[in-house]
Every structure is written in C-alpha cells, then in structure tokens.
Amino acid sequence: MLPALLSQRNEQNKQDADLLKRIQRRDQQALALLYDRYSPVLYPLALRIVVSTEEAENLVQEVFLHVWEKSNGYPADRGSVYSWIVALCRNRAIDRLRSKEFKKKSREVETKEAQIVADLSMDTNTRAILVMKGYAESVRAALKNLSKLEVKILEMSYYEGHSQSEIARILRMPLGTVKTKMRKGIQKLRAVTRREDEAA
C-alpha cells in the first residue's frame, strides 16, 4: 500500500511546486488550495507545540502569509514545498514556545489530541487531502519501527525544542546515548523518504 501512496505523494509534491509557481504569480486560488492541503497538518503541529488554539491559529496564518509574501525564498534544493512549509511552522512555533516558556503546558496536548476528530470537508482539494491522510497513516505504521526511546527523543527535540544535552539531562542518560538514539531515529525516518524517492 505504501509504495502506491508514496507515488501519489510524489505526484502531489509536483503539484505543490506548481502551486508555488502560481503563488509567485500572485494567484490567490493557488494559496487557497495549498492551505486546504496542509492546514490540517500544520494546525495540530502548531497546537502540539504551543498548546494554545489561539497561538496555533496565529501561527498557521503567519506561515501562509509568509508563503504568500516570500514564496520566492523557497529553497528548492532543500526539499519539497511540504517540508519547507512544515519547517516554517515548526520553527516559528518553537520560537514562540521559547519566548513564552510554554514547555510545561506542552505535555497536556496529548490529552487534547485524543479528543481531536479529523473533519475534512469535501471540496475541490479533497483528493489531495485524502492522499495526505492516507500517507500519514502509512507513515505512522512505518514509524512503528522506531523504538519508544527514539520517538521520545525525536519528539522532545522536534516539538519541545530541547537540545541533545537538555534531553540527556531530562532523561538522565548519557549525551552519547541521546545522540545515537536520535541519529538512529532520523535514519529510520529517512528510510521512509528514501522509499519515497525510489517510488518517484
């Protein structure tokens, strides 16, 4: 199932690149389509980091406003449009988190997430959104190869913005172990994207 989804995902990456070119030509409809595709991913990502619906909404707005204003700054050699947008959102959210010191609250998010029900409306972009959803389920399955510790270290780094030494201190384990576990976790994640490349 995953190869088919990956293939669809690669097709979607090409569509995203086309959308970005249209955005560079000030096509508002292109931005609306991109928003429909990725706001259901960016919003819970921001929510996971800042633990505030208001802040998460602001962050999603900021990200798409940035895409609209700075679409020429997209570094095509550093990954897909999707990974660029996700990185924009994650980095802004971490900045917000560091500025407001929401670190304690971030732990409460998982409880909220359990109550979240995906509610995707059927519109012109529905197919792309469903592909994304199916892809996400497959990625989740693939990530089961990661150990709990690898996932924990990656999440602490990605969602909470902790450095490796901070993670070592929090988890009370040697810094070398943290580095190794993180590297292994990233390698397993990259294995998924490599299969994506092979499918392309």
């Binding site: 819970p44 990502l45 050699d77 990954g79 660029w84 996700v86």
Partner: peptide, 21 residues
C-alpha cells in the same frame, strides 16, 4: 539537509489531522 527536512516533516503526520477553524 533536504533529506533531513523531508524526514522531519514526517513527524507531524503522526499527529491526527485537524482542520483549523
């Protein structure tokens, strides 16, 4: 960097999708 960004962009997909207001 591109591979790392792609790999890390997979993490948000492990969170259940939710549309903003």
């Amino acid at each position: 960097l591109a591979q790392l960004y792609e790999a890390m962009a997979l993490l948000p997909l492990t969170i259940h999708q939710q549309q903003p207001p």
